[in-house]
Design a protein around this nucleic acid. Structure first.
Length: 515
DNA sequence: GTAGGGTTAG
C-alpha cells in the first residue's frame, strides 16, 4: 500500500474520534491493511481523548514499534487521569525522553500538588521551551506559591501570552489587581483567554464595576465573548444583585445560540437566586438532564438563602438518592441554610454528620460557618470556644462575625478581643474601630469611646461612609451614609420608615429578621 | 505528544 493511502486512512480515523466516534475509528483501524506508527499513535490519542485510557494502553502494548510521541501520548493520558505514578513508570522506562516528556511530567506533579518535585524535574529539562516554563509557572500559581511563580516568570527568557495570562490569574488570586491590570495592558495582542482572565479576576474579587467596564471594552474591540466570559459577567451581576443585567446576559446567551453547558447553567441558577428570583433558579435546575454536584450545591444554597431550610435539606437527601456524593461545599451550603433559619442545633448535627458519617475533613470555612451561625444566634461564648479549639488560625472574617455579634448582643469583653485581633489582621480598616466604639457607646463607656476615636486619629484611620444603590429604569441611584443630596430624599426616607414599620408589624417579623 | 480563562460556600 502506498504511503499516500496510509496518510488518508490516518486522517479519516482521526477525524472520527475527534468528533466522538471512537468506535468508528476502531473499526476502520482494524480494517487497515498496512499501518504505520502514526496510525497507532492516533488510536492511542483517540482513546485518551474519549476517556478510555485502558484501551489506549492496549494499543500501546500491541503496537510493533513506538516512537517518542507514542510514549508521550501515554504519559499525558495518565497525567490527565491524575495517575501520575503510572505516568512516571513509563517516563522512566522510555528509551528517549524529549522536552515534551519532561514537560508533561512537570505538569503532572504540579497538578498533584507536588510542586517541589515538579520543579526538580523542570530544572533537569535540557532545552526548555516556552511550554515548559509556562507549565511550571502555572504550577506555582495553582498551588498558591505565587512568589515562586513571580520569580520564575521574571527569569523566563521570552514571555509567552499563555505565561502572562497565568501570571494575571496569579495576581488576581492574590488580590493584586493593580499588578494584574498592568500586566494585562502590556499585552500587545490580547486573546479571548487573556480578556477572560482579567474579567474573571475582577468578578472574583467582587469588583463588578470593573468587570463590566472591561467587558464593554472587549465588545467594543470586536472580541466575541464565550461561556467563560459570560459566567464571570453573571458572577458580577450576582454580586451587585442586578437581576436586570443577569437577565440581559441570559438573553444574550440565547440570542447568540451559545449552547449553555452545565457550568453556564449553574452560573445562571446562582445569579437568579442571588438576584431574588428563586423561581427561575428552580426552573433552570429542573430543566437540567443530569445536574452535577455544583448544580445541587447551587440549588441547595438558593433555597437556604431564601429561608427555606427544610427544602434545602430535602434537596440534600434527594441528591444522595441520585447517587451523588456530597462534598465539603455541600455541607457549607446546608450549614448556611441552617444558619439563615437560625437553627443552631441542626447546624451542629450536620457538622457532626459530615465528619463522622461522611468522613469529610472540615476546613477552615466550616468552622467559619459554625462560628457565624452561633454568633448570629447570640451564643458568643460558644462561638469563641470554637475559635479557640479549631485546628485553624481564625481569619478576619471569623473575628468580624464575632465583633458584629458582640455589637448586636452587647459583649464588651469578647468585642475588645475580636477588635484587637482584627486590628492586627487588617490595620487601617476603619470598620473595626467604629464597631468597637459603638459597643462601648451602647455599654455607656464613654471614656472608652473617646479613647478609640483618639486612636483612630493617631493611626490615621479614616471612616469610609457606607453606601448602597438602587436600580430603577436605566438609572442607578447611589446613597452614602448621611448623604441627603438626592432630590427626592424626603420621600425616600418616608417610604423607608413605612416599610420598616410594616416589617415590625408583620407576623413574619421573626422570619424576615432571621431569614 | 505539552501550557493560560469559567460555575457552588462566606
Amino acid at each position: 500500500m502506498p504511503v499516500k493511502d496510509i496518510v488518508s486512512w490516518n486522517a479519516i480515523i482521526t477525524g472520527y474520534w475527534q468528533n466522538g466516534f471512537i468506535e468508528e475509528s476502531k473499526r476502520l483501524f482494524g480494517l487497515m491493511p498496512v499501518k504505520n506508527v502514526v496510525s497507532w499513535n492516533s488510536m492511542i490519542t483517540g482513546c485518551i481523548e474519549n476517556e478510555r485510557i485502558d484501551e489506549a494502553c492496549e494499543y500501546f502494548m500491541e503496537m510493533p514499534e513506538r516512537n517518542t510521541a507514542s510514549w508521550n501520548a501515554m504519559i499525558s493520558g495518565f497525567v490527565k487521569e491524575g495517575r501520575v505514578d503510572e505516568a512516571l513508570r513509563l517516563f522512566e522506562e522510555m528509551p528517549n525522553r524529549n522536552v515534551i516528556s519532561y514537560t508533561v511530567m512537570v505538569d503532572g506533579y504540579a497538578r498533584k500538588g507536588e510542586v517541589d518535585r515538579a520543579r526538580y524535574l523542570f530544572d533537569w529539562i535540557p532545552r526548555k521551551n516556552e511550554v515548559s516554563w509556562t507549565v511550571m509557572i502555572n504550577g506555582y500559581v495553582e498551588n498558591e506559591r505565587f512568589d515562586e511563580a513571580r520569580a520564575l516568570f521574571d527569569m523566563m527568557p521570552e514571555k509567552s501570552l499563555v505565561a502572562i495570562t497565568a501570571m494575571i490569574t496569579g495576581f488576581c488570586k492574590e488580590g493584586m489587581m493593580e499588578d494584574a491590570k498592568r500586566l494585562f495592558e502590556e499585552i500587545h495582542h490580547r486573546d479571548l483567554v487573556a480578556w477572560n482572565a482579567m474579567i474573571a479576576g475582577y468578578a472574583q474579587n467582587g469588583n463588578a464595576e470593573e468587570a463590566f467596564k472591561l467587558y464593554l471594552q472587549m465588545l467594543k474591540m470586536g472580541m466575541k465573548p464565550d461561556r467563560a466570559t459570560l459566567i464571570s459577567i453573571l458572577t458580577s451581576c450576582s454580586s451587585v444583585a442586578s437581576l436586570k443585567g443577569g437577565r440581559q446576559t441570559h438573553a444574550f446567551v440565547i440570542k447568540k445560540g451559545l449552547e449553555p453547558d452545565i457550568s453556564l447553567c449553574n452560573a445562571l441558577m446562582s445569579m437568579y437566586s442571588k438576584c431574588g428570583d428563586i423561581h427561575e433558579s428552580k426552573v433552570l435546575f429542573e430543566q437540567l438532564h443530569s445536574p452535577d454536584l455544583v448544580s445541587w450545591n447551587t440549588i441547595i444554597t438558593a433555597f437556604g438563602q431564601h429561608g427555606h431550610c427544610e427544602k434545602a435539606v430535602d434537596l440534600f437527601h434527594e441528591m444522595c438518592e441520585h447517587g451523588l456524593k456530597p462534598d465539603g461545599v455541600t455541607f457549607l451550603c446546608v450549614l448556611s441554610a441552617c444558619g439563615h433559619a437560625g437553627k443552631v442545633n441542626e447546624s451542629i448535627n450536620w457538622y457532626d454528620s459530615m465528619v463522622n458519617e461522611y468522613q469529610i475533613a472540615p476546613r477552615a470555612e466550616h468552622f467559619a460557618c459554625l462560628v457565624d451561625i452561633l454568633c448570629r444566634a447570640g451564643q458568643l461564648v460558644k462561638a469563641h470556644t470554637i475559635i479557640k479549639e479549631m485546628p485553624f488560625e481564625a481569619d478576619a472574617g471569623i473575628w468580624g462575625s464575632l465583633l458584629t455579634a458582640c455589637g448586636a448582643y452587647l459583649n464588651v469583653e469578647l468585642g475588645e478581643l475580636a477588635a484587637m485581633k482584627l486590628v492586627e489582621l487588617e490595620p487601617g480598616h476603619s470598620g473595626t474601630y467604629i464597631m468597637l466604639s459603638n459597643i462601648y457607646a451602647a455599654a455607656g463607656m464613654w471614656r472608652e469611646v473617646g479613647r478609640v476615636r483618639g486612636l483612630m486619629k493617631e493611626q490615621g484611620v479614616k471612616k469610609e461612609p457606607g453606601c448602597s444603590w438602587v436600580e430603577t429604569g436605566n438609572r442607578v441611584h447611589l446613597f452614602k451614609a448621611g448623604d441627603v443630596s438626592h432630590p427626592e430624599i424626603s420621600e425616600i426616607v418616608l417610604e423607608l420608615r413605612r416599610i420598616g414599620l410594616q416589617m415590625k408589624m408583620s407576623d413574619d417579623y421573626e422570619d424576615i429578621v432571621l431569614g
